[in-house]
Nucleic acid binder design. Sequence first.
DNA 1: TCGTTATTTTAGTTTATACTAAATCATTCA
DNA 2: TGAATGATTTAGTATAAACTAAAATAACGA
Lengths: 111, 111
Amino acid sequence: MTPVAALASPRRRELVRLCWDEPRSAGELHRALPDVTFGAVSQQLKILAEAGLVSCTREGRHRIYRAQRAALGPLRRWLEAQWDDALYRLKLEAELDEARRGPAPAPRRKP
Amino acid sequence: MTPVAALASPRRRELVRLCWDEPRSAGELHRALPDVTFGAVSQQLKILAEAGLVSCTREGRHRIYRAQRAALGPLRRWLEAQWDDALYRLKLEAELDEARRGPAPAPRRKP
DNA sequence: TCGTTATTTTAGTTTATACTAAATCATTCA
DNA sequence: TGAATGATTTAGTATAAACTAAAATAACGA
C-alpha cells in the first residue's frame, strides 16, 4: 500500500499519532483504542509498517512501534512529484483562471 | 472525503494529473482513460471536486475541470498538522532510535 | 420544439477494506 | 517443559468503494 493510501484511514492516522512522540507496544496502542480488537490493531500496524510509516522492533515479548517521522518527507516529495513541478506557475495560472471564467464562448478542444 | 483519501486512489491521481497543466472537459478526461466508462470518470471527478482538488466550470454544454494546485498546500499543511510540530526533533530522535535499538532489556511501560 | 451532444445520476454488481473471533506463534519464567 | 503473556495470523463477515449500464438532465442548433 502506498503511504498516502495508508494515511487515508483515520484509524491508521490515529495509530501513527499515538506512537509519534514516544514508542509504544502493540498492547499499549490497543489499550488506547478501546473500540477495536487487538487483532484489528495488529493488522493496521502491519499496513503502516509496510508503507514505511512506522517501524517495529522487538523488546522481549513486546513489539515496539515508532512513527517514522522521516517518512513524511518522502511522502510530501512524492505528492510534489505528481504535480508540483508546475507549482511555480501557480500565481500566473490563478490569474488565467479568472480570465477564462468570464467570457466562456467556444467549446474547447485539445490544442 | 478528505483530500488525502481522495488522493489515495490511483485513478483519481491520474485525473488530477490530466487536468493539472491545462483545463479539460469531462469528455476529454474520459477519452484519456479508455479502460473505464464515462459514468465512472464523472463519479471520480465529483469526489475530487468535493475534496477541493479540482474545480469545475461550465462552458456551453461542456464541463471544464482544472486541478486546484493550491489545494496541495493545505494538504501538506494538514499532514504536517497531524504530526510535524515535532519535526524539528527529527535528527535527535533518529539518534535516540539507534541507541534504543541496541540494548533492548526491560519490557517498557508508559512513564 | 425536437434531436443531438455532453455530462450527471441512479440502481445494481463486483471488489476491496476493516473488522471480529478464534487459532497460532514466540518469549519469559516457574 | 509447561503455563502465562503479548502479539500475529487466519477464516469468515459486514461495510464501503469503484465500477457498469442505463436513465435522467441540460444546452445547443436545426
